[in-house]
């Protein structure tokens, strides 16, 4: 009876998270705008310093933006023989792309097999994968280094690409995803004479593009931003990723400030594009990541 009375009225003000009095909503908006400005300050500083000269950065008064942007900083960065910036960007790109492609291939097939092909060992294997999630990956860097060095993959891109391919977490997420994939589609494929392999590639994968894109974006961002493992493996400058190059640059004795920030701008640019154009998938991937806890 009461509920019927409520239904006819305006929505109860202030009860839903999206509501509130006009004044409190305005305050919320102003507060959020100020916070957003603060969150963007580091990006502003990267651009400002990348386009300035050392004198402008270290001048006594605050310079809001260089009056004549020094675009020559970019050319100088790539021509500086002391910093292998071009090479490290290339390494990061190769590692990022191959890691993403390989991880998706291995983890999606494994996840599908565990979710859809009944087998007496399936549960044991699933728990073996779950157990690796309990071991924080950063803790295993010492033992992994031991193994990779005995394979002779130190200072070698193979050492950067291959060990992270077998990502228990992505395999776990893939299994959970394929468990909820509609069975009818696959059964239709089986009736048409496709085996497991054919059904997977022709029916299941083409219908899982959104999920796969989310996994791909997460894997690529993680790979591009990884630091500890590339630092362990990248003993010679030829095998540095862009993060290791940035770090070496940052902790070196003589620092050229504009060049440092130009390098930072170059290093973040690919990910800014990923964020601008693929954010939908990334948010979806993050929400999925959080489900695991």
């Amino acid at each position: 009876m009461v509920a019927a009375g409520v239904k006819g009225r305006r929505r109860p003000v202030g009860y839903r998270p999206g509501a509130g009095s006009a004044a409190s909503r305005a305050a919320n908006l102003v507060g959020l705008s100020l916070l957003a400005a603060v969150f963007l300050v580091p990006f502003y500083l990267i651009v400002r310093n990348a386009l300035a000269t050392t004198e402008e950065i270290t001048a006594p008064g605050w310079m809001w933006f260089p009056s004549s942007p020094a675009w020559s900083n970019v050319a100088e960065l790539f021509n500086d023989p002391k910093v292998p910036m071009g090479r490290s960007l290339w390494n990061s790109a190769v590692v990022g792309v191959l890691t993403t492609v390989g991880t998706l291939f291995l983890c999606s097939t494994a996840g599908y097999g565990l979710a859809r092909i009944s087998h007496r060992h399936a549960n044991k294997i699933f728990y073996a994968i779950l157990a690796t999630l309990m071991v924080p990956s950063a803790i295993t860097f010492v033992p992994s280094f031991v193994l990779v060095s005995s394979l002779g993959w130190v200072s070698d891109l193979r050492g950067l690409i291959i060990p992270p391919l077998f990502n228990g977490f992505v395999a776990f997420l893939c299994r959970q995803y394929f468990l909820s994939f509609p069975r009818e589609l696959e059964e239709a494929a089986r009736v048409d004479g496709l085996g497991y392999w054919g059904a997977f590639w022709r029916i299941v994968m083409p219908n899982s593009k959104g999920f796969m894109a989310a996994m791909a974006v997460i894997t690529f961002v993680t790979s591009w931003n990884a630091f500890l493992w590339p630092l362990v493996i990248g003993r010679s400058p030829d095998s540095w990723t862009v993060q290791v190059a940035l770090s070496t640059f940052l902790t070196s004795q003589s620092i050229n400030l504009p060049q440092l920030f130009t390098a930072a701008a170059v290093a973040i640019l690919p990910l800014v594009f990923v964020f601008l154009f693929l954010q939908r998938y990334l948010v979806q991937g993050v929400a999925q990541t959080g489900l695991k806890g």
Binding site: A36, A267, V283
Partner: peptide, 29 residues
């Protein structure tokens, strides 16, 4: 949502660079 999520694109190395060399630099600038 995008603005608050955007820093997640930055690596800790990159953020360290900005924090150390621009925001919390120990000198006057």
């Amino acid at each position: 949502r995008s603005v608050f999520f955007l820093p997640f694109a930055c690596s800790y190395v990159l953020a360290s660079l900005v924090w150390k060399m621009s925001i919390f630099t120990g000198v006057h600038y």
